[in-house]
């Protein structure tokens, strides 16, 4: 499946089916990450049920505390 993530075209393996899968694939599960799929922010309880499709536009922003 090919996705556009943060403006870049990225191909992910077939096992990546949901937002949860995507976050674990990129090892972001333990980060405070906001995920937007096709301009809609996904709530944390929807991560496991939000299916991804070829061509989806995804933005991922993770929080950090330093400064």
């Amino acid at each position: 499946m090919t996705l556009t993530i943060n403006g870049e075209t990225v191909t992910v393996p077939d096992e990546v089916k949901t937002v949860s899968d995507l976050l674990s694939y990129f090892q972001l599960t333990n980060k405070l990450a906001i995920v937007e799929v096709n301009v809609r922010i996904i709530e944390k309880h929807e991560y496991g049920t939000t299916a991804l499709a070829d061509g989806d536009r995804i933005e991922i922003v993770h929080f950090v505390g330093g400064g």
Binding site: N30, A33, K44, F63, V64
Partner: peptide, 18 residues
């Protein structure tokens, strides 16, 4: 509101330098 949309527990201390 923003933090409520994401799973908690990832607020670790950043020690990597800037």
């Amino acid at each position: 509101c923003l933090l409520e949309t994401v799973p908690q527990g990832g607020l670790t201390c950043d020690t990597a330098g800037i």
